[in-house]
Amino acid sequence: MNEPSRATRALAIISLIVAVLAAFALCFAYWLTSSTQVLGGLLALALFAAGAGLTLWGRGYMQHEIVEGEREPLASSEEEWNELARDIQTGADTIGRRRFLVGALCAFAGALGIAGISFLRSLVPHVPTKVLWHTPWKHGVRLVKLDGSPIKADELPVDSFAVVFPEGHIDNLSGATNLVRVKEDLLDLPPEQKSWAVKGIVAYSRICTHAGCPVAQYEDSKHVFSCPCHQSVFNVLNGAVPIGGPATRPLPQLPLGVDSAGYLIATSDFKSPVGPGFWSIK
């Protein structure tokens, strides 16, 4: 092994002195500044200098010796293992009517385990199917903007886009809906959905049917929605059928109507669940 140079030894000593000084400085710095960079910088310097000092010390002042040791066998000997098995067997043999005891304990543990799993039900606040198939939309509920204002069908310009909520449920994500007005003759909705549009105004759930992000982008030149998370693209004109990206299910369409005051209302809830797909959706 090489004799360490004087430089190594000097550097080792300097590093450790820097470590001590930086640590001392940190004691004061905490009371003087709240700067993340100063506090973190001093702490990092102290830690780094101490690490460097120790490493250099190892090179400069310590013997480095490669040693060879023996590995003892890991496994127990056949004899030891048999002794263990024999003792366990001998002990078990002293228990009378063992089969009944084992059976009873297994039944007990099994039943208790099932009981324990039953308690998990308490962690589920609602029955999923009841929640997943419903939103606050129903017949007669007005469409309102984020500020709570209702929308007159006639005042909505062609090619406009708005985010709307069921009146009184603005904080409810499942009711969040994208509202778009296009030229009426462009619409090519599936037959059963034709009556859900009003004067070229269509409304679709804002929650992506792929992974549940808000479908937040509308491109009016192409009449498509797109989701910024995984880039699913939906055609607004034909019932929000996915035409690109990973989504497979159309965005549910909200059946629209107009109330006596001329404001846009829903005429029912969505006909299929909003949001990402799950097992019981056909």
């Binding site: 993340t36 990092a44 690490g51 490493t55 010796e65 490669i66």
Partner: peptide, 30 residues
Amino acid sequence: IVGSRLWPNYAIKSIAMFLFVSAVLVALGA
């Protein structure tokens, strides 16, 4: 098994390693 003994060589190295890992993380945090 061939290597260095825990005391003192490996202990010093390992402590230094801990200090370096901490130093890098603190510097990143800062």
